[in-house]
Amino acid sequence: MKIRFFLILTLASLLLTAAPAGADQSAARRRLISLSAALADVQSINGQFTQEKKFDFLKEPVISRGVFFFSRPDYLHWEYLAPGVSGLDLEGGRVRAWTGPPEKRLPQPEAMAEAARLAAGQVLAWMNLDPEAIEAAYQVTVAGEEPLRLEVIPKRAGARKFIEALEVEFNADLRTVRQVTLREPESRTTLTFSAVRLNQPRPAD
């Protein structure tokens, strides 16, 4: 659902570039602070992703691939390229969700765009990388050192009905995230990032 989807995006926006973490929650906080400082000069993040969803009631995982582009202060492009083409763009609080290739693009219903707009607030909060803001909504702990893994749990019970936890695994360079795993009541989603680049110019619409 939308919450899961945007949690992936928001955490990815935070963790695609990262600094090393400590061994506990306060260490994680220090990491978030240093990460925030390290990302101060980052204006954009882009790359590719592979999304693998394992559902309890689906025999095979559902795998999809796509590209993304974050740009400060408030631009996000998230596009699935296979097996189907769909995605969304958000900028300045406005959201366009769509399906189909560029030449046959169909807008998604208003309700979905509104749901996406709601989530956009979180995306942008993460883009600003304010440790206090993150800790207002999540409990972050260090789950492993090599490779570095952070466990992120929504603080509110209402949110945990949909998202139990996220696990974020960093690349060895500790500058980018390799994988985000989202644990849900009846499914598990893994996002694996590749070809991540920083401060690239924004592509033309």
């Binding site: 919450i3 609080g93 509104e114 749901a115 607030g121 942008l124």
Partner: peptide
């Protein structure tokens, strides 16, 4: 009625 952000428990504007 604006929708609440489920993570924060309150509606949050797009710019946060």
């Amino acid at each position: 009625r604006p929708l609440a952000d489920p993570l924060l428990g309150h509606p949050l504007s797009p710019d946060g």
